[in-house]
Simulated scan of single mutants.
Amino acid sequence: MNARIVLALCLLLALAAPSRAQDESVSGAEEVREAVRGIDESEVRAEALMPVPDPEPAVPAPDPAWALLLSELEADGLPRAELEAVFARPEVRFDPAYMGKKLRALFKTKYLPRPEVQPGPHKTIWETWLTPANRAEIAAFMKANAKALAAAERKYGLPRQVLVAILMVETKLGKYCGERPALSVLASMAATRDYEVVRGYLEEFSPNAGQVDWLKMRQGQKADWAYEELKAFLELSLTNRSDPVIVPGSIYGAIGLCQFMPTNALKLGVDGNRDGKVDLFAPADAIHSAANYLKNAGWRKGLNHNGQMRVIMRYNHDRTYAGTVLAIAKRI
């Protein structure tokens, strides 16, 4: 509201109050008339009734835990302003548990004995996957994506059964692509470099001094690894013009139906449906990308069983995983 109108309103209010003497009222009225001369009455009324807008809410600052990370990403060529806007969103939360749980798993693998397999009858792993319901889902997926599977088979030499078996084991053909935000997972691991922050996750093992040194070394390696994956994830999001905050991922940040780590998505991801972007949540892109990965890992026509196992173990470094994939592929 401009100053002249404010003055006029104040004088009007003063005039309306009881006066001590008639001559003072007359004098006040003259002052009011002088103040409002040239001001439209409707203007005064409109200005007086106009609500004062609330101030714009301040854009929240990113969590201080991200400060060094943002500087490193900026130094590596990513746009600072866009990064700050992303990391300031409430969904992007720093959580040292991701690094803490990873270190627990590494400690168990290195220092603790493996649990013994209990005796008794057991179903083979592939039997647990090929239930009647899962078989029906596999058949429906293969029918719906027959064109993409055929194209990938021709281009990369991968049998469609192997590709479908991998997508089944990885994400149940896209039904379970992870429940954690991939951005928060990778950023939290990249930002968790202080062992004191995760010490509590290892206390039950009472690690000795040598083991603590090993854990600190592995923590640094995993933080470096997570940083490279985070950078690739953000680059992929920028390229696709997609929202990185809403992308679900695994406990270690793998994404899509084929559960690629972001560095592999950048290097080996394929735009299978030709829509101009690599979206690993799109079945055609996931199918072509998995085929491209396996071809680059050494798959070729005529490989024997052991050769196929070696290639699939480059997709997931687990012999049981590779054997399960091949067993499912043989039966679908």
Rank of each mutant, 00 (worst) to 15 (best):
L266D: 05
P283N: 07
R93C: 12
T263M: 10
D63W: 00
V86N: 03
L69M: 12
L9S: 00
D285G: 09
A146G: 10
P262A: 11
L202I: 11
A133K: 13
A35E: 01
Q308V: 01
L12G: 15
A165R: 02
Q219M: 15
G298Q: 06
C10G: 12
L266R: 11
C258Q: 02
L257V: 07
K216A: 13
H288R: 07
W129C: 08
R300E: 15
H288L: 14
M142I: 03
Y156F: 15
P90R: 12
F87Q: 06
G323Q: 12
D54N: 08
T109N: 11
A146R: 10
R314P: 00
P113S: 09
A148M: 04
D76G: 13
A16W: 01
P181C: 07
D63F: 02
D318W: 05
R135G: 08
P262Y: 09
A14Y: 04
G269Q: 00
Y195H: 10
R199N: 04
M189W: 03
K102R: 13
G220Q: 02
E116R: 12
P119A: 11
L280K: 04
A139V: 10
F107A: 00
P119F: 02
E196I: 03
M313Q: 15
L163S: 10
P62D: 08
A88D: 03
H122L: 13
A232I: 06
K101P: 00
I255L: 05
E74P: 04
P207D: 10
N264V: 12
T124H: 12
R20H: 10
V164D: 04
G276Q: 08
A290N: 07
L158C: 12
L183Q: 00
A105H: 09
L236W: 05
D213G: 11
M99W: 00
R319I: 11
F281D: 04
D95W: 08
R104P: 06
A139I: 04
A322I: 10
E170A: 03
Y321L: 14
T124R: 15
E91N: 00
L230G: 01
E91F: 10
E43G: 11
P121Y: 09
Y321I: 13
G302L: 12
L236Q: 07
H305K: 10
N306D: 14
V117H: 03
V278C: 07
V245W: 01
V36A: 14
L15F: 07
F205C: 07
L280Y: 01
Q118A: 14
P57N: 06
A139K: 11
E204G: 07
G28F: 06
W126P: 07
